[in-house]
Design a protein around this nucleic acid. Structure first.
Length: 882
RNA sequence: GGGCGGCUAGCUCAGCUGGUCAGAGCGCCUGGUUUACACCCAGGAGGUCGGGGGUUCGAACCCCUCGCCGCCCACCA
């Protein structure tokens, strides 16, 4: 006996345990089963589940469960990311908060141990939260980006790319984060609008013949200026090109050069050039072979290359001092307030400095070629498609990828330096030593590169490293390339693009056939959720309140093509109600003895209502299947919602009641079997989205061999769609529906039981209505049906399903209300007639529109005219009545 | 500066390749002790589909243009 209500709190952990224990999450071994695979976007190992994860993982689970039920060897491979900077930052903060030594004092080895310890304590959090969501990941295959297998893949890839000259060491400007004291990639730099100034500085010409004014928002960089540039075609400055200015404060002469980079329209038209501290200036410096003077240390303090008075000063202190000195020297020509973008580290929030260092780079340009082609040729398809433009845009303008990080938490770069600085890149120290010995002719001590790799380097290998690469494992052979990747648009560049490049380069195949980009979740007002704003919705809290199924259904239903989702608890509540509705439908079936019958053939049902619901079930199954195949998750959800609530519950079960309570035993048996069959089908179709409640009902409503998670997806026979049964049910449903609307509009008391007059109906229609007298009586609350009837005065007429009816309710109704209703209806029909006639009178329309469209319009006109005549008649009778 | 997305009932959104496409949920209003369900049932009101122009027999859907809103990339003279 089903409980009065579903209790997610107790059922969810129980059912999840059963699934996991049964091994249902692992792909079936059957070699004939087609493979289906998804790799999870690995969340940060020490993170916890936020609502975005809930969406992303719900969709992955929906697909995985769908394909599993369809008979695929379905693998959803889970795992976590070591998240270099993010995790190191957390542990550093912990050290600071607990008053312990900082990481430098602690030393590398001890610090890394601390991070591992933190990973051990908090590392399981997010994977356990995924379980609460119902994620059917194969935990036996769980991976971590720093585990041995993946680390080996990282080293192999690094060494290979290095050998192919696609990884190289280079000295150039990088984005330097002075807080973490590491280089970061372009993608990790976030431009933030801040209030600042342009300071206009006068640089006196060396020969004393005047001055040249330049503007800057970073005055301290003038200490490292090595030129002033003007545009070659700028007549104002032409005579000065080749001369020098004497750099104030520093006293160094620097040349005035001509370069296209200088924009005559901007500022004074002359621009200071600081090659070691500005990306544009760096290029100018290279073109003109200018000296590059680095005046900053890793903390962004002024170093020994700055004038003595500045050494050791923080960059912002130095900025103030430079401005003060210019003012004192009488060379400050103006200060302008501006709001401009300043680069910040996305993790640290510190202002990033362009900084000249040696780093490792990946030749992304070369790797991007095949990755662009794969999408151009449709071997990998983005969904929604428009994201391909974003992908192309970035890939076609890709810059070298700086992969070294001056951090301790991550994959140590497999490069060793000999005493003379020669680099030996190898998969192990042993190999590096062997190579060194061969090179030097004797054993020499080697020093491993101190740096680690960008977190995204190992993530880029995720689709194949997790399957066992570089070994050609069974999993790799079977599950690579993966079927679909589901992720957010915020990591298309960070992750998707790089997986494409690495996957193609190392396996020759794109890592996934399809990339589904899910939306970003915002709060009900459309604001991005953030802890600081306090508008975050905790998925676990939502699961506690509404159950995992309700949250999952909500996220699935709202996952349209839009870029963002505004989530409100109201919506979740509505889908919780939907789950309850399903539960109650199952209780109804149970109470009425509707149990799935093994040999039941829905296609052989005889009652029209049963033939009709069988057809509707086929259509729904088809719609859900098509939608899930296309990642149209919202369509799948709404097809299910509509069918369960508005078709099965509102109509089928209601129509079934008189049968189930009646005395026709054969009819009862068929209806019970059909009700159970449809419910069972619904449980299957709904299972990918609402796994818990459907599994629970599956187990409780019949003695079944296996769990629903392992049941097969409905593959129903289109032949069950019976258009004759549909027409019959249209008539019955129409007679009831339109009749109910009339009663309500005319305020006929609910207790009134008039007789329903059938004023026009053909033989078949009469037969159908006759057969459904009980149903109509119950649902429309009428005493009975009278055939061959004529509508007397005060009988309110209506049409439905091609037949005409009338409700004799004169004694109950407000005549004025009815008159106004009829008048309104007549006017509406009149408008229809007017519009349709005009259309049909248009010779172009007749000539050019397809004939079926013309025909359809003719039919509508005829029908409208007939209805209008009837309504006018009724109005006339009403007048007579008064 | 370059690119992308959005603007459809009070709110959140669906409307694929132009021809019942003007819809759903929530909210609102009216009425319900119909033995599965008040987390319910029945009914209802609400929109000239951002503005303007064009293409077409016909446009929410295609083109142009304007206006807002949002995002991404580039930009620190």
């Amino acid at each position: 006996m089903l409980d009065k209500a579903f209790d997610p709190k107790s059922a969810e952990p129980r059912l999840y345990g059963l699934w996991e224990k049964s091994g249902a999450f692992s792909p079936v071994a059957d070699p004939a089963a087609p493979p289906f695979s998804i790799v999870i976007p690995p969340p940060n190992v020490t993170g916890s589940l936020h609502i975005g994860h809930a969406l992303n993982n719900t969709l992955q689970d929906v697909l995985t469960r769908f394909h599993r039920m369809r008979g695929a060897a379905a693998l959803w491979l889970p795992g976590t990311d070591h998240a270099g900077i993010a995790t190191q930052m957390v542990v550093e903060r912990q050290l600071a908060a607990s008053g312990n030594m900082g990481r430098r004092e602690l030393g590398r080895e001890a610090f890394v141990e601390r991070v591992w310890a933190w990973k051990e304590t908090s590392g399981g959090t997010i994977t356990h939260q995924l379980r609460r969501l119902g994620a059917s990941c194969d935990w036996s295959r769980e991976r971590f980006t720093l585990d041995e297998g993946l680390s080996r893949a990282v080293r192999k890839v690094f060494v290979t790319l290095h050998r192919q000259k696609l990884i190289y060491r280079d000295k150039r400007l990088v984005n330097w984060d002075p807080q973490f004291q590491t280089a970061i990639s372009d993608l990790e730099v976030e431009q933030r609008e801040v209030d600042g100034h342009y300071w206009h500085f006068a640089y006196p010409l060396e020969d004393g013949s005047g001055e040249i004014v330049v503007a800057t928002s970073r005055p301290e960089t003038m200490l490292a200026d090595t030129a002033v540039a003007v545009h070659p075609a700028d007549a104002r400055y032409a005579p000065l090109v080749g001369k020098c200015v004497r750099l104030p404060i520093v006293g160094r002469p620097v040349p005035i050069i001509a370069d296209d980079y200088a924009d005559p329209e901007k500022g004074s038209g002359a621009v200071k050039i600081t090659p070691a501290h500005d990306f544009n200036d760096f290029k100018v410096g290279q073109r003109h072979r200018l000296p590059m003077i680095n005046i900053l240390d890793p903390f962004a303090r002024l170093n020994e290359n700055a004038p003595a008075a500045y050494r050791g000063l923080d960059r912002f202190e130095a900025r103030k001092k430079v401005v003060a000195e210019f003012e004192a020297l009488g060379l400050l020509r103006g200060v302008e307030n501006v709001r401009h973008a300043v680069p910040h580290g996305d993790r640290s929030g510190a202002v990033v400095e362009p900084y000249l260092t040696d780093q490792w780079y990946v030749d992304a340009k070369t790797l991007a070629g095949p990755a662009i082609a794969a999408v151009e040729e449709g071997r990998t398809v983005f969904e929604p498609r428009h994201w391909e433009k974003t992908y192309f845009e970035w890939m076609r303008n890709i810059e070298p990828w700086c992969i070294s990080r001056q951090l301790w938490w991550g994959h140590r770069i497999p490069a060793w330096y000999g005493p003379d600085g020669k680099i030996f890149v190898a998969e192990s120290e042993t190999e590096a030593k062997a190579a060194a010995a061969e090179h030097y002719g004797r054993d020499e001590p080697l020093r491993q590169d101190e740096d680690v790799l960008d977190t995204w380097f190992s993530s880029a290998l995720w689709p194949f490293s997790t399957l066992g690469w570089p070994e050609m494992t069974d999993d790799l052979a079977r599950f690579y390339p993966t079927h679909t990747l589901i992720t957010g648009f915020d990591i298309i560049f960070f992750w998707v693009a790089r997986m494409m490049m690495m996957g193609l380069h190392f396996t020759g195949e794109a890592p996934f056939g399809r990339v589904f980009i899910n939306a970003l979740i915002r709060d009900a007002e459309g604001a991005k959720m953030s802890k600081s704003k306090g508008n975050v919705m905790d998925p676990l809290e939502l699961i506690d309140i509404y159950g995992a199924d309700a949250l999952r259904f909500t996220l699935t239903a709202m996952s349209g093509q839009a870029r963002d989702i505004r989530l409100s608890t109201q919506r979740i509540e509505g889908y919780r109600n939907f789950a309850t509705k399903l539960w109650n439908a199952a209780r109804f079936c149970e109470i009425n003895g509707c149990v799935a019958q093994a040999g039941f053939d829905p296609g052989a049902a005889s009652a029209p209502v049963n033939r009709w619901i069988a057809g509707e079930t086929v259509k729904t199954a088809r719609a859900v299947t098509t939608a899930l195949e296309a990642c149209a998750f919202d369509d799948a959800a709404s097809a299910l919602y509509r069918f369960v609530w508005n078709v099965y519950c509102d109509w089928y079960l209601e129509l079934a009641k008189p049968v189930l309570q009646g005395t026709d035993e054969a009819g009862k048996t068929e209806t019970r079997a059909m009700a159970a069959f449809v419910l069972e089908t619904v449980l299957k179709l709904l299972h990918p989205v609402m796994p818990f409640i459907t599994e629970e009902l599956w187990g409780q409503t019949a003695a079944r061999a296996g769990m629903l998670i392992g049941a097969s997806w409905p593959n129903l026979d289109d032949a069950w769609i019976d258009s004759a049964a549909e027409a019959e049910m249209d008539l019955v449903i129409g007679a009831i529906g339109s009749g109910r609307a009339l009663r309500s509009e005319l305020n006929v008391p609910p207790a009134a039981r008039p007789t329903l007059l059938v004023t026009e109906a053909d033989a078949r229609q009469r037969e159908v209505l006759q057969a459904n007298t009980a149903v109509i009586g119950q649902m429309l609350r009428v005493a009975g049906l009278e055939f061959e009837a004529t509508a007397g005065p005060g009988a309110v007429p209506y049409l439905a399903g091609g037949a005409a009816f009338a409700l004799p309710v004169a004694e109950f109704i407000d005549l004025a209300a009815e008159r106004s209703r009829l008048t309104k209806e007549i006017a509406a029909r009149g408008a229809d007639i007017e519009r349709l006639s005009r259309k049909l009178a248009n010779a172009d329309f007749i000539a050019r529109a397809p004939s079926e469209v013309v025909e359809e319009n003719r039919e509508r006109l005829t029908e409208s005219e007939a209805v209008k005549v009837k309504l006018e008649l009724a109005l006339a009778r009403l007048a007579a009545l008064q």
